[in-house]
Amino acid sequence: MLELKNVSVRYPGMKDNALSDLNLSFEKNEFVCVLGKSGAGKSTFIRCINGLQQPTEGEIHFDGTPMSFQKEELRQIRREMGMVFQHFNLIPRMSVLQNVLTGRFGYRSTFKNLVGWFTSEEIQEAKRIIAEVGLTEMENRRVENLSGGQKQRVGIARALVQHPRILLGDEPVASLDPGTSNRIFSLLQDIHERLGLLTIINVHDIELAKRYATRIIALKDGELIFDGKPEDFTSAEYQETYESEQQNLFFQI
């Protein structure tokens, strides 16, 4: 369904690649967690998939066709991929319902978006999804008055209303407490199982990854160092993923 072929990313002015020569393929029904230290390239990896970051080399194939970075085609690909963010990235001063409805923007005409004409089906659908993520009766609350966990639920609802085929998460629980993180992950798992969405999520927390993922990918300095089942990600792999070069040096001495 989704395939990365020799994907590399190098930011302008940087000596090293942020991602080096990644070759990966993903199928429907996978729940993938991406592990790695800060700066290992996790974010860059996720952002490549929906074209927020253009690879310097290589190609990304979606349903067998290489992804284009042409404005219109990119837009059509993006609306099939929902994304949730670390800082939620909701639109302030708008209600839960309004925020969720912006998830439909990719499918509607500019004029309809500007005047805010939504069909009653679209509104019913948005309300149904808001209830599904556990925010029943909250659709008219302003998003800045919600707690962190509730905000992320709005973020998830906004992604779901797109009817995406892939759900991406860039550290969606990094600014939440452990209990809330756990509940958000189990919501993501529910959705994944019910809709059969390919779900790819960056996390810090290896416990969460091992509990929920069906597949773990580990990145280090932009390179793939692990790709396999959660049960195969043992303390040796953990060491390799998270140890720093300074520690290496220390041990060598």
Binding site: K71, N89, L90, I91, P92, T102, R158
Partner: peptide, 25 residues
């Protein structure tokens, strides 16, 4: 820039994305 990125990720047209993510702020 967060909301602007989210609107891009949703597949909104560029200027609709800018308008909706920036003006309320």
């Amino acid at each position: 820039t967060g909301p602007q990125e989210a609107m891009k990720a949703v597949g909104a047209k560029r200027w609709v994305a800018s308008l909706f993510s920036i003006l309320p702020q």
